[in-house]
Structures are given as C-alpha cells and as structure tokens.
Amino acid sequence: MTDAPLLLAEGLTKYYGARLGCADVDLTLHAGEVLAIVGESGSGKSTLLGLLSTALDPSAGRVSYRMRDGILRDLAALSEAERRLLLRTDWGFVHQNAADGLRMAVSAGGNVGERLMAVGARNYGAIRAEAADWLGRVEIAADRMDDDPRTFSGGMRQRLQIARNLVTRPRLVFMDEPTGGLDVSVQARLLDLIRSLVATYGLAVVIVTHDLAVARLLSHRIMVMKAGRVIEHGLTDQVLDDPREPYTQLLVASVLAA
C-alpha cells in the first residue's frame, strides 16, 4: 500500500445561494480504504458526496485524485472528456435509487456492458461473457441477463448497479445510501456482498449512510456531519464506541438494538 492518498479534499465548501451545503471539509482517502459519512438528513453528507464525485462544483476548496499514472490531479482542471473517462472507468457510483444509476429500459447484460462499450469494447461475445461473469459475482441468475431492471426487486437492482460499476475494475466507488429503503434481510445480503467485493478488489469507498450499523460493518473510518460541517472523524469503532461530540453521542444512543 502506497502512502500517497487516492483522493484528497481540501477546504471543500458548497453554498446553494445563501444556504450552506457543506463547509471546510478536508479529507484523504487511501487505496482500499472505506470511509463512511454519517449524519441525519440535511447534514450535508450528500452534498459532500456530490462534491467529491464532481457531480457538484464547489464554492470553494478542491478535490484531487491520484490517476492510474500515479499523478495527483486537481479534478476541476480535468477536461470534460477526461472527467467522463474517469467516472466510467476508475470510479463507480452506486445510487440509493437504482433508477438514477441504471438504464431501466436496457437489459441487465446491457447495463453491465455499457461501460465496456463506452471505453471501446466492440466484440459482442466478449462483452456478453464479461457481463455474465459480473452478474454471477453479484448473485444475479444467468437467466435474468436479458431482462430489464424494471422486472427486478430492489435488492437485485442494487446488485446490478454494483456489477455495472465494477465491470471496469474501478479503484474508487461512491455509494449514496446503497441499502436505503430495502428490507432488513435484503440489506444484510447486500451489505455482505459489498463487504466481500470491497475486500476482494481492494476498493476505496466513500459511503454516505445514516445507518450507523452499515457504517460499522463496512467502514474503516467515519466522518460525522452536522449542519454542513464535519464535527467528528476517526476510526469507525473508536467514534462509535467512544463518541466525543454531543451530537455523535446522541446518534449512537439513538440506535435501536435488535
């Protein structure tokens, strides 16, 4: 593991007009590291994810990424073509709402194959074989390959999103509440899948969640956000077992024990 960070954010600030989205966020993420961003609705965690993934432009601050050539680049300085290439090869994004991350009218195989075709794959048989392989890895039955995701359950859609993202072997994946709105048993299966894929492929992940159990299961480090600011961060088990800030203590104390 190299010591140079993969992702580096400095002083990230976002205003929506006069309203603060998030302020002065610094973070580093290394290869293979999972960072959870927790906080309640409106705390700025989704804004921060948007800034890190270049979906939003910061009002101040910057995000840098170590490209595959090893050079740390300011993402704002990338051309649109470079940015798109990055988004669909070295990065992934798993949305809470599968319809935001999938083409709902395109078959599961086509959804997975799209990234390959986008980077120039032009052999149907090879694309299909790769897509089938990835559907297997996310536990989608081979006979569903030509069905479109409108016929899939919520859990399957999320697994399809993951396959679609991982087919180009990204190094960094952003996840926005990937288990939100799913049944508990479906959540458990998805979390286990994410956990094993992260370990197998050494993925770096930034995951936004309001579920502390998800953060504990998946993440190495955690950032707690409140009113647009990071109020506490550190080792996940340390922050959750020994929370320091009043708000973090409240969050931890509010979790229902099963």
Partner: peptide, 8 residues
Amino acid sequence: KMIFGNYR
C-alpha cells in the same frame, strides 16, 4: 480498549 485504539 485504549491499547487497541478502540477508545480514545
């Protein structure tokens, strides 16, 4: 827990 880094 402090030794293990689990507590601050």
